[in-house]
Design a protein around this nucleic acid. Structure first.
Lengths: 112, 112
DNA sequence: ATAAATACATAAGAAAATTATGCATAAATA
DNA sequence: TATTTATGCATAATTTTCTTATGTATTTAT
């Protein structure tokens, strides 16, 4: 991301997708993976990431296990059963959303 | 849109795109066109639309002309020269953003 | 007649980020 | 070896950007 935050609102489904694809992950790892995948385009800020992960944990969407890597802590998150169900819904919504964006931004080539 | 606001942050570029494609438009028309194009998926609320249009006008991105259609007012908006420039930038950002979403949500089929 | 659609506007509140800050360890670099 | 960068977590204050609710008024459909 450069400046304007287009991905405001998409962070939660992005995290769910990462966990769905990669099993358990820790926060910092998520930021790095998204940065890599998007070639530096999307940079998740810590101030957005950690509070969201905590919220998802409270909601029972994810569960966390803290492990030590040498002397450094890592808090691994993974989808709960309810979280997997929720992820399916979120992915359908994302698909529809992305298709809608295509319709608007690319009206000629978009297939629907 | 159903419930979650995935498109938070995307409203401005969406409006710019509409104006770029259709020349001058009035607010209500924008909401209807987006609803049509997206098959009811994206419903722009008035509380989001009008304040944003006013902001864009203040910033010199759009200019407005009020006309009467019978007894009903319509406020037509169109891109200024600066607005067209800004739209180009915004469309590049949108393109990159959408590509990034593809990378994340559709890692196998996404082409980059 | 009444409801729905058209057409604008604004205010209060909520949601979801950004920015700034803090702590701590490990690795790289000047 | 001193300092910066990277790793890894966390939270608070603020800002951005919506949603929801409300208001006014005309036109069309039921």
């Amino acid at each position: 991301m450069k400046k304007s935050s287009l991905y405001k609102g998409c962070l939660e489904p992005i995290l769910l997708r990462l966990l769905k694809d990669n099993g358990r992950m820790y926060g910092y790892q998520m930021t790095q993976m998204v940065k890599d995948i998007t070639k530096g385009e999307l940079n998740i800020t810590e101030g957005a990431l950690y509070p969201l992960l905590h919220k998802l944990e409270e909601q029972g969407i994810v569960e966390a296990v803290t492990e030590m890597n040498g002397n450094r802590m890592r808090k691994y998150y993974s989808l709960t059963k309810a979280g997997k169900k929720q992820t399916s819904v979120a992915m359908e919504e994302m698909k529809a959303f992305m298709q809608s964006l295509e319709f608007i931004v690319n009206p000629k080539t978009a297939i629907g």
